[in-house]
Each structure stands twice: as structure tokens, then as C-alpha cells.
């Protein structure tokens, strides 16, 4: 037997098998669920992250440094044993089997704030000062000056947030029990047998699963590679 990476035969038969079964593996449904979850999660992350990164990078307030170090520090603890308390919180909020259980908790991450803050630190503080002299307040500086400048990195953040929530599989299988409500990644795991190893079917599924993230990437790369020219930011 020679080695074949992608024999045409299995590709077609596996996709047919994947797409034809609608009751136990509602692929389209999972796909839509994932889309709703990942898009909402990304929007939430963008809002929360850009706001906080601005404050941690450019505003002065008491305990700023300490607070940020504290946030970063706690983020370094592996979250293995937190599964049960986190589930209890989700349960108390009545979010079991709700997409919210996947949309909100991930937005607690500090890493994206750190990333955006690092990018902001490259923008000269003079920009803010000039605007402040013109009478702009913090919200205006944030929305008019900084936001347009950090668009490329926000696209990177969107990409990470979207892919991260799209690929998560342990957490969704803990919080969802309804097959119809599952997102696609844990859904696809149901195709893989308990004992039978079917690498071919799983690979077919894996390729289906990356289509939206890949499309998002293709769309995003056009923009985040656009040069973020600092001078145009000042004019605008």
C-alpha cells in the first residue's frame, strides 16, 4: 500500500456521507450555531478589548500598573480545575445550553488587551496631547484618533477571537447537551467513533470546519496588511 495523502475517492465519499445525514449530525445547523457564537463573541471581545487597552495604555489612574499586572498574573494559571466552578456560574445564570455560555466567558481573557496595548504603545502620545489641546475628551481621542490607527491589530484580534471560539471543543461539550444547539467543532467529534478510528472522515470534517475561519482570514489579510500610516490618522 502506497501512501496517499488525499485520495480523491475518500474525499468525495466522505463528504457525501458527512452531508447526507441530517438527524444525528445536523452539519448545517452546527455551522449556523458556530457562526452566531463566534461572531457575537468576536464583537464582544473587540468592544471590551479596545476600550480597556486604551485605558491601560493611555489613561492615568490610581493602581493602573498594579491592576494590569494582577490581571496578567492570574491569567497564567492553567484553568483545568476551574471547569467545575465555571460551570456552576453558568448554571446559576441559567446559561446551560445557551450560546451565551460560549460567547461571554472567553472575553475575560487579558491577552488580547495586552496585544492591543502593545500596538498602542507605538502610537506617539503627542497625538493625544494635540487632540486634547483642541478640546477633545478621552472618549473622542479613543474613537477619533486611536481606533482608526489600531484597525490592523483589531483585525488580528478578531481573527484570534473568532478562530479560538470556533475551535474550542471541551467547553462546548460540557455546556451543551442538545445536539441541535452544538457548535460545529464538538459536533464533528461525534462523527469520530469511540473505538473505530476513522481518520479519513475526521479529516473531511476538519476541512469543512476551517472554511469560515479561512474565509475570514482571506478577508482580513487584505486589511491588516494595509499600511497603518500614522500621519493619515492625525489628519482624519
Amino acid at each position: 500500500m502506497g501512501f496517499k495523502l488525499l485520495p480523491i475517492e475518500w474525499v468525495t465519499t466522505n463528504y457525501v456521507e458527512l452531508l447526507s445525514d441530517n438527524t444525528s449530525t445536523p452539519l448545517l445547523r452546527w455551522f449556523l450555531n458556530s457562526l452566531v457564537i463566534s461572531v457575537s463573541h468576536t464583537l464582544l471581545v473587540l468592544t471590551v478589548v479596545s476600550l480597556s487597552a486604551f485605558a491601560y495604555s493611555r489613561l492615568e489612574f490610581k493602581g493602573k500598573k498594579m491592576l494590569f499586572s494582577f490581571l496578567m498574573g492570574t491569567m497564567m494559571f492553567p484553568a483545568v480545575v476551574n471547569l467545575i466552578p465555571l460551570y456552576k456560574i453558568i448554571d446559576t445564570l441559567d446559561w446551560v445550553n445557551s450560546p451565551l455560555a460560549m460567547i461571554v466567558p472567553g472575553a475575560a481573557s487579558v491577552f488580547n488587551i495586552f496585544l492591543v496595548r502593545q500596538f498602542m504603545s507605538n502610537i506617539p502620545i503627542e497625538f493625544d496631547e494635540a487632540a486634547r489641546i483642541d478640546g477633545a475628551n478621552d472618549f473622542q481621542i479613543f474613537s477619533k484618533i486611536i481606533l482608526p490607527l489600531i484597525k490592523p491589530v483589531l483585525l488580528v484580534v478578531s481573527l484570534f477571537a473568532f478562530t479560538g471560539s470556533w475551535n474550542d471543543f471541551l467547553w462546548p461539550s460540557i455546556v451543551f447537551s442538545d445536539i441541535e444547539k452544538m457548535p460545529i467543532t464538538p459536533g464533528l467529534q461525534l462523527l469520530q467513533g469511540m473505538y473505530q478510528s476513522q481518520p479519513t472522515l475526521l479529516m473531511a470534517g476538519a476541512f469543512v470546519a476551517i472554511v469560515p475561519t479561512f474565509v475570514l482570514y482571506l478577508f482580513a489579510q487584505k486589511y491588516f496588511l494595509e499600511s497603518m500610516s500614522l500621519s493619515s490618522g492625525v489628519k482624519g
Binding site: I84, Y87, L170, S173, S177, D178, P186, L190, M194
Partner: peptide, 17 residues
């Protein structure tokens, strides 16, 4: 409700708890 084996065994104590 079919679940991946390892996920099911993680889910059981979580839910029972």
C-alpha cells in the same frame, strides 16, 4: 445525547455537582 467518551466522563461530575 451522544457525547464523546472523554467529554462525557468529564461532564458527569460537573453536572452531578
Amino acid at each position: 445525547v451522544s457525547l464523546k467518551e472523554t467529554d462525557m466522563y468529564t461532564k458527569i461530575p460537573t453536572v452531578v455537582n
